[in-house]
Nucleic acid binder design. Structure first.
Length: 136
DNA sequence: GCCAACGTTGGC
DNA sequence: GCCAACGTTGGC
């Protein structure tokens, strides 16, 4: 199983929308590096959902329910979508500030490549962030 | 609102 | 293929 972090602007699509919808088509990615990571996703992979912009925090955990297929929002065959469902909301959203303060999370591409919207996480990073989110 | 980072585009 | 110009993202 692999682990990922996905960014979204909450004004466009938020964690609340995700919980309400129960399942979402993650479309609109128009960046090759992000697209290539999406191609590596398989059913059952876990994803963390991050709100960019004003909130700047990791909101919760989702799961891949459908691997990549052509993005329905474009005819351009280069771009793909995946389907996700929400699994668990974090009691405490993890702020970007908190991520920066954790030395063990210093390798996150979230910090290194601020414009990348889809990125892999190691199992250790994923589990560590989950513990932080559960406020234990 | 500003601007750094960086991806994309297009002229040469 | 290079690179300047331009556009976008996203933190501050």
């Amino acid at each position: 199983m692999n682990y990922w972090l996905l960014k979204t602007e909450p004004e466009v699509y938020s964690w609340a929308d995700f919980e309400k919808d129960r399942q979402v088509v993650w479309d609109g990615v128009r960046n090759y590096q992000a697209r290539n990571f999406m191609k590596e996703m398989s059913v059952g992979d876990k994803v963390l959902i991050y709100h960019s912009g004003k909130e700047r925090s990791i909101k919760g955990i989702g799961e891949l329910v459908k691997a990549h297929y052509p993005d329905p929002t474009t005819d351009d065959a280069r771009w793909i979508s995946v389907d996700l469902r929400p699994v668990e909301v974090f009691l405490t959203p993890i702020s970007l500030e908190a991520v920066k303060e954790e030395k063990s999370l210093g390798g996150l591409l979230l910090l290194k490549q601020k414009r990348l919207s889809v990125m892999p996480l190691t199992e250790e990073e994923f589990k560590y962030i989950c513990l932080m989110g559960e406020n234990k």
